[in-house]
Amino acid sequence: MSNALRDLSEAGVSVWLDDLSRERLRSGNLAELMSTHHLVGVTSNPTIFDKALAEGDAYDQQVRELAVRGVSVEEAVRMITAYDIRWAADTLRPVYDSTDRVDGRVSLEVDPRLAGETERTVAEAKALWWLVDRPNMMVKIPATAAGLPAVTQALGHGISVNVTLIFSLERYRQVMNAFLEGMELARTNGHDLSRIQSVASFFVSRVDTEVDKRLEAIGTDEALSLKGRAALANARLAYQAYEEVFSSPEWKALEAHGAKPQRPLWASTGVKDPSYEDTLYVSQLVARNTVNTMPQATLDATADHGEITGDTVLGTYERARADFAALENAGVDLTDVFAVLEQEGVDKFVKSWESLLNELSAKLDESV
Rank of each mutant, 00 (worst) to 15 (best):
V245W: 09
E328P: 00
D60F: 01
S2W: 11
L128D: 11
Q62V: 00
N189W: 00
T43V: 06
K252D: 13
L299K: 00
R22M: 14
L232H: 07
W129Q: 06
L165D: 07
A230Y: 05
N189C: 06
K227W: 01
G28D: 04
A115F: 12
G182Q: 09
L25Q: 04
L155G: 07
E255K: 15
R263G: 05
W129S: 14
A127S: 14
S2F: 12
A326V: 02
P94D: 12
A330L: 00
L33Y: 11
M183Y: 15
R321D: 04
V245N: 08
D19T: 06
K227A: 11
V207P: 03
Q262M: 14
D365V: 15
A52Q: 03
R236P: 04
S168F: 10
D347I: 10
D90V: 00
V337C: 09
L226D: 09
E366M: 10
D133C: 08
V15L: 05
R214P: 03
L8W: 12
L165I: 15
F49G: 08
V15Y: 08
Y242T: 07
H157E: 14
W16R: 06
N162P: 07
I85K: 03
V211G: 10
Q61G: 07
I48D: 09
N162W: 07
A200E: 07
R24T: 03
D365M: 14
D212Q: 08
D7E: 15
F203E: 05
R24F: 02
V40H: 02
F179K: 13
G258T: 13
I48R: 11
V102N: 08
L169C: 02
P264H: 04
H257V: 04
R173K: 12
A259I: 03
G228R: 08
S98C: 09
L148A: 08
E277G: 09
D192C: 11
D273H: 02
Y96D: 02
S247V: 03
Q296R: 13
L66V: 06
W353K: 04
Q174T: 00
S168I: 06
D300R: 12
L280N: 04
G158V: 01
D304W: 01
S367T: 12
G310K: 03
Y276P: 02
T164H: 05
T290E: 06
A235N: 09
G28K: 02
A82L: 05
T47G: 08
F49A: 05
E344T: 01
T220I: 05
A54V: 04
Q284Y: 08
E216S: 12
S225D: 15
L30N: 09
R171V: 04
S225G: 12
L357V: 11
E210C: 02
F203H: 12
V211F: 13
R288G: 14
T188P: 00
R6N: 12
S27K: 15
G56D: 09
H37K: 12
D300N: 14
M294E: 01
L299N: 03
A178V: 10
L356Y: 15
D84G: 05
V211Q: 10
A259N: 10
A200D: 07
H257K: 10
E75F: 03
D57I: 04
W251Y: 14
H38V: 01
R78I: 14
S275Q: 13
R69S: 14
G228S: 11
A123N: 08
L131D: 07
L299G: 02
